[in-house]
């Protein structure tokens, strides 16, 4: 399973300050730590970035790829910033990913960008209205995003469907519905659709000492249903990923499997 390292987010004070000061040190240090912990892609979340977003995303992509030979997941609602980032992205290190499109017309242009640059994209199964109620509603939205992707000429294997993980502390009943959605998404196409989640959302608002527990057990259940990728903290989830891969027979067991 692909871990997309979540730690380079503007929400974190240290990262935000480094972004504002264009201080490469902390950004590269966090990128390297995530790669060493098992990340296969690095998320660069620059927020809405309404002013100077293009230049900031360019700087983030080049700064990250100077330090680690990994693709970047470009995370912003600013269309121009995404395109600027894609232009400087080194695809020798892997195909970049756009985070994200959805069923909101304002996010449709992201799909066009993905088709234009032949990159990966997350399709968040939400519309302009409220949050999806259950797995059926999520799958209906997913089908619309898939139809639109084909219309724009984006191969479906480039699309990662995201059921939108919600907070267990406020909407507990959604946790199981999201797990069921992962299974249902895969049935929407042959070969099965790829899936992704923003994992730590499950424990948002929970006490710090239970967050990592919720995140890890939740990931195990999602992986059992065939999850392709998770935006997560690799330090926190790598043991879970390796262990579930062994239990599911995707990796050959050896006593030192955690060290590999």
């Amino acid at each position: 399973m692909l871990i997309i390292g979540e730690k380079l987010s503007i929400i974190a004070k240290r990262v935000r300050e480094a972004m504002m000061k264009r201080d490469k040190g902390p950004i590269q240090e966090i990128a390297v730590a995530q790669k060493n912990a098992g990340a296969g892609m690095i998320d660069a979340n620059i927020g809405p970035a309404e002013d100077g977003g293009e230049e900031l995303m360019e700087w983030m992509v080049t700064t990250i790829q100077e330090a680690v030979q990994l693709p970047v997941c470009l995370d912003t609602t600013n269309y121009a910033a995404i395109e600027a980032g894609l232009k400087v992205h080194n695809n020798d290190y892997g195909t970049p990913m756009i985070n994200s499109t959805s069923n909101d017309p304002e996010r449709f242009p992201m799909l066009e960008l993905a088709a234009k640059y032949d990159c990966l994209i997350i399709g968040l199964t939400v519309g302009k209205g409220g949050l999806p109620a259950d797995e059926e509603e999520r799958s209906a939205i997913a089908a619309e995003i898939m139809a639109r992707a084909m219309e724009y000429g984006l191969p479906l294997e480039n699309l990662y469907l995201d059921p939108l993980v919600l907070q267990i502390a406020t909407t507990q009943e959604q946790a199981v519905k999201v797990i069921k959605t992962i299974k249902m998404f895969q049935e929407l196409n042959d070969p099965p659709m790829k899936t992704v989640v923003g994992l730590s959302n499950i424990s948002n608002g929970c006490p710090k000492d239970v967050r990592h527990i919720l995140n890890r057990y939740y990931l195990a259940l999602l992986m059992y249903e065939g999850l392709t990728a998770a935006i997560a903290d690799p330090v926190e989830v790598i043991e879970t990923v390796k262990t579930i891969d062994v239990i599911m027979g995707k990796t050959l067991y050896a006593h030192s499997y955690l060290e590999m």
Binding site: L252, Y253, A254, H255, S256, E259, M260
Partner: peptide
């Protein structure tokens, strides 16, 4: 034993 075979290769690379 396939698992011990992998384990020995891991130990050697380590």
């Amino acid at each position: 034993d396939i698992n011990l075979s992998k384990q020995l290769n891991i130990l050697l690379t380590q």
